[in-house]
Structure formats: structure tokens, C-alpha cells
Design a protein around this nucleic acid. Structure first.
Lengths: 205, 205
DNA sequence: TGCGAAAACGGAACCGTGTTCCGTATCGTT
DNA sequence: AACGATACGGAACACGGTTCCGTTTTCGCA
């Protein structure tokens, strides 16, 4: 359940001009960062990604200042907590394309996987689409990792003549993400069905 | 543009056990309520439906206590501001059904109208799907007014054999609402296209 | 017109959260 | 051991929602 385990000591940040950005010289800093990741993961499960800063700090046994030092914005913390899962999702794209009967099937499965991920994280989908500038990093990370994969799947399906060729990957991802909002607080609403409809609507006319 | 004008003095509340709930005996109360509605409408346009309570009070030239007296929750205020437009949308359903070439066309047009309404109200779509219990009234009002109309349109289209018969009106409305979130803060995202896809996905296979 | 009770008003005060700042503690090195 | 750099903690501040109560306004009635 908790896969936020800290296998890496420090940012393996995407932008990377060249080489990783120096893994903190002090042991306590590394320890606290790891403790914060665990605490945040736990807090997110019960209180959603909007869990109060003080709660997370308390769980980790550190002061609030320490959170802000390691993760200047909430988005940084969220990204750090879910990075592995987002990366796994991104990497699943090409694999599905290779294993599935058709590109459209692969696309459907990939989207399902993404929906399953989002729908189980209280408030993540909402945060992902908040216009609060503090969430820009979160925005950027998801887009950076997932949109290209989605584009690849769309392209393959379009090339196979299965779907309309004029679908924008960014817009689709954004729409799917939006559909996942509130999935965990309304028993009458299951985003999977609607996302299925959306994917069905992609088919060539 | 501003259609929040106060043509009615007081709640013509839906539930209505019997008779309207007494239109406030005092002139100042009615005047303040109207001023609050105008102020809120104006504030919503520039700051979204999350406009600070104090801002709205200041615009209306009243104290914050007066807001809470007339509109105990933010949802009550939002409902009051947009009631006319929601009602208009609800009433447009049957009319479209009568005027359109086919039920599916009517459904598409009706949904478009709803999207146009939602997409231009900063933050309304987001508030509509917030799990904050303070927004229950808002939830309830939209569902109460619009879901039955949507159900009627879906039924007609299903009866005409144009769409699958197993679509739930509530779920569809909720999905459309979700797709509208963030429409006004991201130039790359146009909910109309995705909603169109969704409606297309409804078609019988 | 004058009066008193009821209704409504206003805004200070309170609370919960995010964010900043700086004196103190810890680490790693010499 | 001593020192400088690094990191820590939490008090203090900012901000927005909400409550509460002393004051003002309205309205029916004499």
C-alpha cells in the first residue's frame, strides 16, 4: 500500500541541466526528508493531498519550517510522493502498445490505469487542475511525463485508422483528469464509465 | 450581462411544504438582500465564486454579519445569484426537444448551453463538485433542477434508438460539470470539444 | 406623533491554516 | 576540540471564514 519508500536520497529532477543536483551533505537532512515523504504519504491517504502542513510535520516529528525547506510548495511534496507511480504509469504506455491487440485497446487500458491511480488519491485530481499558481510544479510534472505517452498512443491509434486524427493529447489528459474529480466521495459517480464513453467517442466516425 | 436583478423579494424555495416562506417584514432587510445579490454577482465575475466574504460585504456596503444572516452558507448565495440562469437552462430542455431535428441533437444543444453557462463562471464548476459539506445546497439545487431534464432528453434519444439506453443522467451531468472545471484559466483547454466527444460516445454501437 | 418590542445591522473578536523568519542545535571537517 | 556551514523548530504573522452581541432601524399601535 505505501510505496513511498525512499529508495533515492534526493531529487533526480527532470530538468537536470547535467548530473543530479547534489544529494544534501547532511545525514539529518536526508533522514528528515525521507520521514516527511512517509508522513505525507500517510497523511494524504487519510486527509487527502490537502492535509494540513502541521499535521504532516507532526507525523514526521519535525517542525513546519523543515517541510518548507525541503518542499517549498505543496506541489513539490505531492510530486515527490507520487513520482514513482506517475513514472510507472508513463512507462506502461509503450508496454501496453506492444502487448495489446490494437492501439485503441492499448489506449483504453492505459487510460484506465491512469484513472485507477487518480481516483484513489483524495483530492489529487482536483489539485491537479486547480488554477492556484502554487500547483504549477504538479501540473508540469504530470504533463511532462504523461502527455507524450498519451500522444504516442493516440498517434498509433490514429495511424491504424481506429480513431479520429484530430485529438489533442493534452486536452484528453486534462479531460480524463477532470472526470476523476470527486470520484472518491460520491458513490453514485464512477469516472471509469464516463471515461469509457469519452474513449468510445474518439472512434472514427 | 448582470441578470441578478431582484425581481422577487424572497425565497421562492423549491421544497415549499406549502406557500412561500414569508417575504421578510422589513424594508432594510429586503434592500440589503438585493444589494448583496448584486454585489455577489459582481464579485463572482472578477474573483470567482470564492470571492472573500468581506469583499462582497464591502461591495454591498453592509457588514459581514448581514451576509450570514441572509445566506447562511456560501452555497445559498451562489444559488440565489444563479437561480434564474439555472432555471432558464432547465426550461430550455423541453423546448429544444420540440424544436430539434432529433432527440440526440436536442441533447447535444442542451448540454452545450449548460457548458456555456458553467464555463464562464469562474470556479463554479469546481465548487459544484467540491466535497465540502457547505456546498450541499448548491449540489442539491443543480441536481434537482437539471438532472430530470437531462433524464428526459436521454430517454427520448434512447427511445429513438439513437443512443445506448443505459446512461445515467446524474452521472452524465456530473461528468459534464467536471469537464468544465478550469475552462476559464487554460487557453489550451476547451471543454466543449471533450463534451462533444462524450456525447458522441453515447451513440448506440 | 410618540413609543416599545422585534428585527436586523455591523464589525470586533476568534479560529484554523498557510507562510516566514531567526535564534538555536547539529553535522562534518580541520 | 573548535569552527563554520547547514539545518532545525516553532513563534509570529497573514488571511479568510464564522460567530456573537451591543447598537440601530423599522414597524405596528396607541
Amino acid at each position: 500500500m505505501n510505496d513511498s519508500g525512499n529508495d533515492n536520497d534526493e531529487d533526480a529532477g527532470r530538468p537536470a541541466p547535467d548530473g543530479p543536483p547534489a544529494p544534501s551533505r547532511r545525514k539529518d537532512a536526508r533522514r528528515n526528508k525521507a520521514a516527511l515523504l512517509d508522513a505525507a504519504a500517510a497523511a494524504f491517504v487519510v486527509s487527502g493531498v490537502d492535509a494540513p502542513v502541521r499535521d504532516i510535520a507532526a507525523r514526521a516529528g519535525v517542525g513546519v519550517g523543515t517541510i518548507y525547506r525541503h518542499f517549498p510548495t505543496r506541489a513539490d511534496l505531492i510530486v515527490a510522493v507520487y513520482r514513482h507511480q506517475v513514472d510507472a504509469c508513463a512507462e506502461a504506455g509503450p508496454a501496453l502498445l506492444a502487448d495489446s491487440a490494437s492501439p485503441h485497446t492499448a489506449l483504453g487500458r492505459w487510460i484506465d490505469q491512469f484513472v485507477d491511480f487518480l481516483a484513489t488519491k483524495h483530492g489529487l485530481a482536483a489539485a491537479l487542475h486547480s488554477d492556484d499558481t502554487g500547483f504549477d510544479t504538479l501540473h508540469a510534472y504530470f504533463i511532462d511525463r504523461l502527455v507524450p505517452v498519451c500522444a504516442q498512443l493516440l498517434e498509433a491509434a490514429a495511424a491504424a485508422g481506429e480513431i479520429r486524427p484530430d485529438i489533442d493529447a493534452y486536452e484528453l489528459m486534462r479531460g480524463v483528469g477532470n472526470l476523476c474529480i470527486g470520484a472518491d466521495t460520491d458513490a453514485r459517480y464512477d469516472p471509469r464509465r464516463l471515461v469509457g464513453l469519452l474513449i468510445a467517442g474518439l472512434r472514427r466516425t
